[in-house]
Design a protein around this nucleic acid. Sequence first.
DNA 1: CCCGGGGTTGGTAACGTTCCCAGCGAATCC
DNA 2: GGATTCGCTGGGAACGTTACCAACCCCGGG
Lengths: 335, 335
Amino acid sequence: MKRPTMKDVARVAGVSPMTVSRVVSGEAGVAPDTAARVEQAVRRLGYQRNDNARHLRQKDLGTSTIGLVVDDLANPFYALMARSVEDEAHRRGYVVLVGSTNDEPRREREVIAAFTARQVDGLILVPTIGGHGFLKQPMRAGTRVVCVDRPARGLAVDTVTVDNRAGARRAVTHLLDHGHTRIAYLGDRYDIWTQAERHAGYVAALTDRGLPSDPALVRHGLRSREGTHAALAELRELADPPTAVFTSNDLITLGVLDGVGHPPDVAVVGFDDLPLGERLDPPLTVVSQDPVALGGTAANLLFSRIEGDSSAPRSVILLTRFVERGSGRLPGRNL
Amino acid sequence: MKRPTMKDVARVAGVSPMTVSRVVSGEAGVAPDTAARVEQAVRRLGYQRNDNARHLRQKDLGTSTIGLVVDDLANPFYALMARSVEDEAHRRGYVVLVGSTNDEPRREREVIAAFTARQVDGLILVPTIGGHGFLKQPMRAGTRVVCVDRPARGLAVDTVTVDNRAGARRAVTHLLDHGHTRIAYLGDRYDIWTQAERHAGYVAALTDRGLPSDPALVRHGLRSREGTHAALAELRELADPPTAVFTSNDLITLGVLDGVGHPPDVAVVGFDDLPLGERLDPPLTVVSQDPVALGGTAANLLFSRIEGDSSAPRSVILLTRFVERGSGRLPGRNL
DNA sequence: CCCGGGGTTGGTAACGTTCCCAGCGAATCC
DNA sequence: GGATTCGCTGGGAACGTTACCAACCCCGGG
């Protein structure tokens, strides 16, 4: 029981495959009654065109497929981005292949290779720290690439990011404004660009006030709620423990909130927003970014490239939003 | 500047395309030094096999591509499912096309048509209310289909769901146990299977105690936080307002929490868990389901079908977990 | 010395589609 | 009325790959 082909439809309709092709692709120049006969045969056989074969033959047209490669599709941040990309793609008649890298260069290579082997017209990429030389050849052959959330070192392509550094700096300045001087930084792997940027913003805010960054208050590489618990516990053991914590992503914010008591004994400001942040006691102050805008912008850039724009690579930097709700003031001495 | 083909590699290596094919596909029976020459040419040209052409020729083998069609990829629940599906696919060397339906039958048809036109080997589907007759032909032709989260009416395929009805009944029983008798139901569109099931569980719990379901306390069709605010406000206007609310998904739970005051004046139990639920005051009591298990189970079923299992369609029902944290007891009269 | 066989390699056709061009009848034009 | 054009249709080739089979080389056995 195989799929019917154009040949089958042609036989049933009593025409040549070429005519079927024309009807199925909606080309002009087929007599109305011939077209009707073909359409009837199509319906009768349940025929559907094989787009892989089609794209193989059509040289100039692409495959109407793009690839989206993110760190972790289960992360709500990337999920929102993905949905936004998918909507733009759907609007234009494209489909989207997705893959998660787990921030592992090897898996990134595997996923991208699988996508380019299927002749995707473009890639939207949250790059890992690994090299991207393997993209050179597909790019020469016409695959467009856009980076989002982070730039890829040594890859001259359109890139959409947010002002991580400024956002973090703003958040830490807020903590300083409320009298905190011992402020901890809890972040994910330092080799992730966004994390390094946010750490730089943390340091910059301290430097603005002439304060040094105490290495004892800085923890990198936190990848889980549990890991964050341990880091927080260690900070509490210090002779001079922090009175405030800047957390550099959602997962870490959650981990810290697990350990700050009711009511909290430590001020917290986090990067990324959480759905219930405003319902906490005290409500959570955050630096929020807009994943839908990130994904949408990246998709629009990619499609304009696919449609032929070949100007110099652009870099788009979106703004973060500082949302002050209260958690940065506690247990502030000046309030 | 085109992509190199096997012919190009063959010319550079001084062999026939057939030999290149053998080397690239790792077939045995090529002399070691010939293979080395080919591999060198591959590297020199940056050659990558065109898997679309490959799958076109290989009749019995598939495309190593599956499609995942969910309601909304941005929903954390489906995002977790998607990641779980993607992991299983990646493990087996498959790639995943994703699409969101928005619960619109028309968009579902479009997305699925785009996927089957690309000859996906299988589909994991969160079906909308619409008919699925258009799947008959692809299924006859070998495309395997598995439904997840909801069954598709009139489609005899493997289906993975959770015990929505039992979960809802358990939650509402909990509210009854704590003295509530005026319990509202706030749900999404009633034509979504999960929502109808959860409503049935709500009614069943009331019936268990000989209580009628007051239509004034039931609101269907809530699709946003804002819509939920309005529904909650209406309920408050009633002469005999509810003292407890059962919310039938995450988004509605969030909407209700927006409107219950600090501290809350209404007990709340929700379907689906929220990341910060345990940090609320009082902590949120929920019926939690496991999207990773749902996705993983569906993927495993699909791949066993793809690998040839042709037994009768199975129906897998996963259990929900009732997580009692406190929000169902307030402002309970018996406590 | 000739024949058979294993190990390598290449030629041809085919997967399902579309591009390009030729063919054909009818209609149009002077 | 003959030539030209137009509208419609079909035949052959090609996209990049692999299945299938034939050919070739070299070796050992009879």
